Amino acid sequence: MKDLDYLRDAFGPTGSLRAAINLGNPILAGMDRRTGMPYGISVDIAGELARRLRLPLEPVVVSSAGKSVEVVRAGQADVGFFAIDPQRSDGIVFAPAYVVIEGCYLVREPSPITQNDQVDQEGIKLVVGKGSAYDLYLSRAVGKAEIVRADTSPAVVDHFIYTGADVAAGVRQQLEADALRLGGLRLLPGRFMEIQQAVGMPVRDQASLDFLWSLVEELKASGFVAESMKRHGIVGAAVAPLL
């Protein structure tokens, strides 16, 4: 493995580790209103990476996964936290997934739709968060339903209600929270996809990727990821399997 000075320069060319923190996924991060600072599992992992590199952590807070990808690609962040997807691999490489999340559908209580395989039908309007992992996936998988894009993942259910669409897609935890907040809504059983959340970084050299890969695997194996999820009260997700 390359020495620490080399890795510090590779990961922190500005003298700090700039980590894109996505507030659009409540499993990954949230904002402490008292301190104005982000918190969550992605912040914990970014902090541990910065500690290992002996760099100060500089959170770059964004509102969606799509924006997180954009700032990493633009060189405005050194690492980012978003789901693995082929459409995000241009200029970005991924460490192994650290958590897996369920992508689910939500409908109104009276809806005749009761199963996931009933969603892709002519005349169905399906709301997704623009640029989210499930937007990218459903854009490839859906052939008949019309996909409608809300600006961010947290805005999906409100957009679904406002526009009178038929189905909302999203992370199970976000949809459950919105269903509880609004009432008259239900999640379809099961999931339509498994979302693998990972740390992504601009394409560098193999030594940098090996370092990040080893760190993520160590944090999963040691219980760091599980403890972080427990501390932040995360449900609807699981620690990703070791590779």
Rank of each mutant, 00 (worst) to 15 (best):
G190L: 12
D120M: 06
E194G: 08
T114F: 11
T152Q: 11
V235H: 10
P154K: 10
S68H: 09
G15C: 13
L53I: 06
R186F: 07
E227C: 03
Q197S: 14
A141S: 10
R186Q: 14
R52A: 06
Q76S: 12
V239A: 05
L49W: 03
L175D: 12
V156E: 13
L28K: 08
D166E: 09
A221D: 03
Y39E: 15
G236H: 11
D32G: 04
M37R: 15
D9V: 05
P86N: 15
Q118G: 09
L106F: 02
S111V: 00
G91T: 03
G164F: 08
I84F: 13
E102V: 00
R191G: 03
G236P: 06
R18K: 08
V142N: 02
D32W: 00
Q206K: 05
A240K: 05
Y134F: 15
S222Y: 04
G40V: 05
E217P: 02
R231Q: 10
L7D: 09
V93Q: 15
L138M: 10
S153K: 01
E109Y: 15
A29V: 01
P202S: 04
S214W: 01
P56I: 07
K125N: 14
A177H: 07
F211C: 01
E109S: 14
E109F: 11
L138P: 07
P112E: 04
G12Y: 05
D120P: 15
K125R: 15
A226S: 09
S64A: 04
L182V: 10
L138G: 02
Y39L: 09
N25V: 13
V235K: 12
R231W: 01
I21C: 01
S89R: 10
L215A: 13
G103I: 00
P189N: 06
S111M: 11
A179N: 02
V61G: 01
P86C: 05
R18M: 07
T152D: 11
S89K: 08
Y134E: 02
G36Y: 02
P241N: 06
I161N: 00
I101L: 14
Y137S: 08
I161P: 11
D90N: 04
A168M: 06
N22E: 07
V216D: 00
R34S: 08
Q76F: 12
L219T: 03
E58P: 02
D151W: 13
R149A: 06
V61R: 02
E102H: 13
G143Q: 09
G80A: 15
V71A: 15
S222G: 09
V100K: 05
I101Q: 12
I27Y: 03
M193P: 06
S63F: 04
Q118T: 00
V225E: 07
S153D: 15
K230R: 12
A169D: 12
F11W: 07
A179S: 07
G47F: 03
L7E: 01
R149P: 10
F160C: 14
G36P: 10
L175H: 11
D151V: 06
V100D: 09
